[in-house]
Amino acid sequence: MGFFQDLLHTSRVKSPWLIHFDCGSCNGCDIEVLACLTPVYDVERFGILNIGNPKHADILVVSGTVNPRNAKALKNIYDQMPDPKAVIAIGACGTSGGVFREAYNVLGGVDKVIPVDVYVPGCPSKPEAIIDGVVLALEKLKKRRPEKDTEPLVADLKKAREFYENREDRQVTR
């Protein structure tokens, strides 16, 4: 069993397929994510592919702040990814909400909705940093067993839901 286990773990590390979700980023981070695919950085060297379908993906790369509207979509996308999976929050906005943290319609960083494994700071994050982030995420992903090791959703998720449900009350009236 050990051999197959090792083979599986190696393969996981060598074949991370990313899905990139833009939560309302200013596109600065998005462009940097795509830059990783260009010949200059060529992440396919590490077996990394940019995939458009959460059902095929291993790593969810999220950029931008989370607001009540896209929180649901983000959560849904995350739910549709088969285990084992990891999440990387990209950029100042993705990690914490950035300069928009205090805005009335902003929940905060990605970790308010789904469990985040790696935070990549920067505004925007550099491609090298993003690649570094993926490598970090792979370490976590490597030994994760489906179903068993998924961390329970952060309590903030509940909060986010409440916020979403009560947003009428909190809307700014003109």
């Binding site: 083979l7 599986l8 190696t10 393969s11 996981r12 060598k14 074949s15 397929w17 010949p39 060529d42 396919e44 060297r45 590490f46 077996g47 291993d58 088969p82 285990d83 084992p84 489906p146 179903e147």
Partner: peptide, 20 residues
Amino acid sequence: RFGPPILQPFYDVIKLLGKE
């Protein structure tokens, strides 16, 4: 570009087999 290792398709398939 430099490209993935030659054995990349096997890594992909083994990884997929280990998924939920």
